[in-house]
Design a protein around this nucleic acid. Sequence first.
DNA 1: AGTCTAACTTACTCGAAGTAGGTTACCTCC
DNA 2: GGAGGTAACCTACTTCGAGTAAGTTAGACT
Lengths: 205, 205
Amino acid sequence: MSTERRRRMPRAQRERQMVTVAEEMFAERGYQAASMDEIAERVGVSKPMLYEYFGSKEGLLVACIRRARAELLAAITGAVDGVANPEDALRAGLVAFFEFTDSHRRAWQLIRREAVAAGQAAADEIEAIRAQQSAIDAALLARFRPDAPQRDLEAAAEIIVGACERLSIWYVERDGLDRVTAKQAAEYVMDLLWYGLRSTLGSPT
Amino acid sequence: MSTERRRRMPRAQRERQMVTVAEEMFAERGYQAASMDEIAERVGVSKPMLYEYFGSKEGLLVACIRRARAELLAAITGAVDGVANPEDALRAGLVAFFEFTDSHRRAWQLIRREAVAAGQAAADEIEAIRAQQSAIDAALLARFRPDAPQRDLEAAAEIIVGACERLSIWYVERDGLDRVTAKQAAEYVMDLLWYGLRSTLGSPT
DNA sequence: AGTCTAACTTACTCGAAGTAGGTTACCTCC
DNA sequence: GGAGGTAACCTACTTCGAGTAAGTTAGACT
């Protein structure tokens, strides 16, 4: 008889734990198939607590996504900050991105696969990640080519984000055979895009 | 009192009608929120018929996705077929893609937003669309540069597919203001990528 | 007219999301 | 150290929609 009494926890700590468990469950079983009862049980708490803190199943998913987004943002800004040369900054950002998707596979899987299961809110949250990425890229490009029209910068940023998202999936999936590193993935993107970026967004340096 | 007697239909025809209605409903309300009862009602048939023909709600979603995929494939192969010059072929394919996402907004929304709601099967089906796109692109690039290593071709194809997917969303969303046409979207992609493609995948032409 | 089957129905079960309302551990202030 | 307040927690329910069992009719073809 384990006399392990369930400890009470302050809300913030419990929430973090719940998000962690939910992330596991969603990634493992898929959003739909994961049940709130089971998540609650694994946390060691009853279902209404989840609803107390997150409002709904989708709310819980949103919390998972939001946390991943914050972490991704931190990783990238950390890598880019203080790098003066735009080319190096972009490269550093790309490497950080691929490293993140590699090391946070669970969260990344969640984002790309369980995306919109729940509805609007979760979809918006994921879209917000992409928007965040685009904004970073657009800002970076703007620093590089202040003269280029806004629309072109946006389009270029979208292309970069899309390319990275897709390449990261490819890259994570060909895990076993013939490993591609984060650096190589970043190089692929740089090689394909950098010429275009230089020539399209105004006169070359 | 409308004496409109419900007509019986052969299976194939009824299935097509069901997929059409389901596509509408899923796009309109989201996968989760759309109910099988309501879809059945709108079709003018009872729920078990849907299950008879599609097995499950997810099966119905898969059927929607699959149809859109077939249409997309037809549109692109139609555009690319017979174009000898690789650059023009790629451009024609891109234009066809953006035209498709523009004219089939409903289906496209469905694909990008209701993606993985249901589970594995639907996710796989969507992934299959991307794989289809990548394969087309990789084949195209291979024709252009038969000497380049397989892995580089794959990476380039993934980048193109990701860039297009993302750009098409951006493009469809900035609908009102300052319209971007399918041709322009394709041009953005070409401008950014073509230099890179020429220089990366072997020696320039 | 009789028969066979594909197209269709009504009327259910079952499981998981979400909720109403009450209980208990822990901190605080005297 | 006891009273009181509140944040953390629970049991026991309702509801709603996915999925199903078993039977019914239209209409095609002898």
